[in-house]
Amino acid sequence: MYLPKFTLESPRSIEEAVSLLGSGEQTKLLSGGTDLFPRMKYKLCSPGVLISLKGLPSFPPQIDEERKLIIDANISLTAITLSPEILEKAPLLALAAQKVATREIRNMGTLGGNICQETRCLYLNQTHTFQFTEPCLKRGGKECYFAPKGKKCWATFMSDIAPTLFCLNASVIVAGLDGEQQIKIEEIYTNDSLKPLSLKPDQIITKIIVPKTQSPSGNGFAKFTVRKTIEFAIVNVGVFLETEKDLKTCKKARIAVGAVSEGPQRALEAEDWLAGKSLSKENINKVSQKAASSLKIIPHHGYSKKYLTECLKIQSKQALNDAVEGLADQSNRGR
């Protein structure tokens, strides 16, 4: 397998990158390349021009005067796991970054790239030289191999990190020909497998902003895979719990799930139910059940819906328990 031929641009500023990006249809942003290059090798896209983000000014994670955490979108996933600022202000993000792929891929892959990755499907993510030669919906054709009668694409969005940004109530700064704007993380996703991101062709995510939290909080992240390494998730769950001072009563829960649908999903029903309740074993079991039964689940990568529902329940419980355990540790340390 080899890359198709392309031209590489290396802008030195965001403005230059945006103007290059807006100048042609056949352009794509190159950050770590861990999602893009395999897709190019599979001929799922053949951009004539790649705009590398490597030459842009970069900055380490910062905590501003409002105690917000500001992260460069180009930060590598490895750097996320090592940043003292992130470990202090958004440990959930580090938990998820640590679970992505392998160390080699984390060294290359970036935060911006991870949350902007394309949706995946077994039928889609391979070359189509003699297998699946009729293009599917996502390749511009008329049919879906996964659900032949449907007129909908069922590719799933596999990011491990995006759900945790949902939990953290994060926003992104987007630069484009019209200037910069800040948008909520939820808004960059369309829940459409064909085009999972709402960003315009000239837009680049430059920063990720995590607001400060008042209450004591607990974090949990569960990623279920067969091999415990390199794979995309069967299902992943992020949990962020804000508690009362007792560290045992849930003030607000944010639970987000990935890998089982067209975009990350918040388990809103489950979150509402848990708010104000004690974080008891019984309640955690109940809220996990609620999360599993209330969310959209697409069978993917050979896993059935029934099985994924079961997995989601167990992984939600795992993530919630981890969050509660973290709170208990804080309590024991007298914080």
Binding site: L122, Y123, N125, Q126, Q131, K228, E231, F232, H301, G302
Partner: peptide
């Protein structure tokens, strides 16, 4: 090897899961 009508659904090291050192 996941096959459907003579076609392989997982033709890569990513989706054909050989044990890793973790297993």
């Amino acid at each position: 090897i996941m096959m459907e009508k003579g076609r392989t659904l997982n033709p890569s090291w990513l989706d054909y899961r050989m044990p890793s050192i973790c297993n």
